Structure formats: C-alpha cells, structure tokens
Amino acid sequence: MEHVTSVDGTAIAYERLGSGEPVILVPGALCDRNALKPLALALAGEFDLITYDRRGRGDSGDNAPYGVEREVEDIAALLAAIGGQAAIYGHSSGAGLAAVAASSGLPFTKVVLHEPPYGPDDVDSSEDGAQVLELLREGRNQEAVEHFLLMAGMTQAEAVELAAGPGVAELAPTLAYDFAVMDYGAPGGRLPVELLAKITQPALVLAGTASPPFMIDAGYRVVKQLRAAALIELADQNHVVPPEFLAPVLRSFLQGSVSRR
C-alpha cells in the first residue's frame, strides 16, 4: 500500500497490481479499495491496476468540509503519482465520480461507467436521500444503510443482511459523499446532461440485464449524451458482476476501440 497527498492535505491510500496501461478503479458506496481488488487481480496480466480508498474510507484520511471537487483532486493526485495518464473505471456511485472527473478535463485515455445510478428525470430522490442523512446525523448508521440499500432496489431482507455486515456501519457516513456525487451537475440524482457532454474520451457504459430497471434505463440515457460511447448489456448480471465475467468485457474495450451504438 502507498499514499499520495491530495491538494487539501488528505492522504489517499492506494495499491497497484500488474503492469501495462494504467487503469484507476473507483469504488461505489460503502466500498473501500478491496471491493474492486478481485477485478484488479483478474486484469493484472495486461494492465497496471490502481485500487484506492476514497477519502473517509479504509486507510485514506479525510478533511472537512467535504466537496465533490476534493474527490476529483484525489484522483488527479493519483494520476500524477502513476505517470499522469490512465484509463478510469467506476462502479455505481463510483461511476458517477468517474464521470465528474472525466468531465473536468483530467487526462484519461478511456472511461468506463458501470451502472451509474442516475434516477429518472421525473423522479426527485432528494427526500429519500434526506432521510438517510438524517439517520446518519442521529448516529443510526445501520438503519441509514438499510434505507439507502432499499433506495438502490434491494429487498428488505437483502438490505438488512448487508447493512449488518462487518465494517459496513463504519462506512455509512460516507454515504453523504455519494449523494453529493450523484447530485453533482443535476439536483435530485437526475441525469447531468451538460456534465456528460463534456466527456470526450472513448467511453463504455455497462448495465446488467438483471439489475433494477432504473439502472438499465440510466445506462441508455447516459450513452446518448456521450460523444464516443457504446453500451454493453451484461446478460443475466445484476449490479455486482463477478470478475470472471466482467474482466473480459473490460479487457476487450481497454485494448481496442469503441464505436457508438
């Protein structure tokens, strides 16, 4: 494990696996760098994979006040540490963060957005988000996680089980960061059309056919806003895809080119 120092002095922990073209992997809500490590291991034969702890998670530090721009600065610091250029893959709200970073003009070679959870334009998710944030303010972290997972389309039983998992409640306060990321550029978690239009790199959007319908729909709406992008449906896969299924898809895109469809 190594650390890089972000603009505001926050230490960001990261690991590198493999060799080849650098690829930064951005985890989603309630995840640290270990969540994407199996995927990194599956791709390490061809690429230099960078997994990292987003601020406030794992071995990374944190500084107040939080701002989405600070997370973009964290990624910029990683880029500088690994040579100044890389592809980027983001999962879930990590895909939302990857989109913000790519729209900022950072020197990414390619961009992969895996089920960024943008909601329908006619639905405002801010009320549900406010309930999660209120539970966090009251210190009811496990309940906050349960409510968040229900928002994401899980069943009650699934949400309760996952929220009770080891270390999950400790990561709960960073849900506020994920809400801020998904609201960045458009209120209420709606599609940030102007932000997405600024992404000029070759891009791939991924959606599992077994995922909640709103996530599949979001994928199709996202790809329409990108200048050079394709969408691939991952057959019979839900929001979390096994690395043995996902790695070949990413390998093909990262080693080749993409045409819009």
Rank of each mutant, 00 (worst) to 15 (best):
S60E: 02
Q142T: 15
K37T: 10
D8K: 09
L231D: 05
I75G: 02
G167T: 04
L204Q: 03
L43E: 00
V181C: 09
D59N: 14
T155D: 01
L133E: 14
R54H: 04
P213I: 13
G185D: 09
Y177W: 09
S104D: 07
R54D: 02
C31G: 03
R54A: 10
E71C: 02
G45E: 00
S257Q: 12
A230G: 07
V23D: 08
Y66M: 03
T209E: 13
G67V: 01
V132D: 06
V193P: 03
A42K: 00
D74E: 06
M215A: 09
V181H: 04
I82F: 02
G105T: 11
I199C: 12
D183Y: 14
G219T: 10
G153W: 01
H3D: 10
N34L: 10
P248R: 00
G96A: 07
V68R: 01
Y14F: 15
C31N: 15
S252K: 12
L231Y: 03
L106Q: 11
H91D: 06
G84Y: 12
M182E: 11
M154F: 13
T5I: 14
A186S: 13
R190G: 11
A130F: 03
A87R: 07
P243W: 01
L49I: 10
V258K: 04
Q201W: 03
K37V: 07
A247I: 08
L162D: 05
V72I: 14
Q225V: 06
G83Q: 08
A247Y: 04
L231E: 05
N141C: 13
P166R: 00
L97E: 12
D121Q: 01
P65H: 08
A235Y: 09
L78N: 09
H239N: 12
D124M: 09
A99H: 08
Q237E: 14
A172C: 05
A11L: 13
G219P: 11
L231Q: 03
Q131A: 15
R190C: 05
A159S: 15
G105A: 10
L175G: 02
L41Y: 01
T200N: 09
G219C: 09
Y14R: 11
E158C: 06
N238E: 13
T109I: 05
A172Y: 00
M151I: 15
E158I: 02
Q255M: 10
D183R: 14
Q255R: 12
L206M: 13
Y52S: 03
S19H: 07
R54N: 08
Y14A: 12
T5F: 11
G96N: 09
G167C: 00
Y220C: 02
A157K: 07
L78R: 02
D74Y: 04
L136R: 12
Q237I: 03
A157T: 05
T155F: 01
E161G: 04
R221S: 06
Q131F: 05
H239Y: 12
A81G: 07
V26T: 15
A101Y: 07
G67K: 12
L41I: 08
P173H: 03
D178S: 15
A13N: 13
L195V: 05
L78G: 11
V240L: 12
G84T: 11
P166H: 00
S6E: 10
G129P: 09
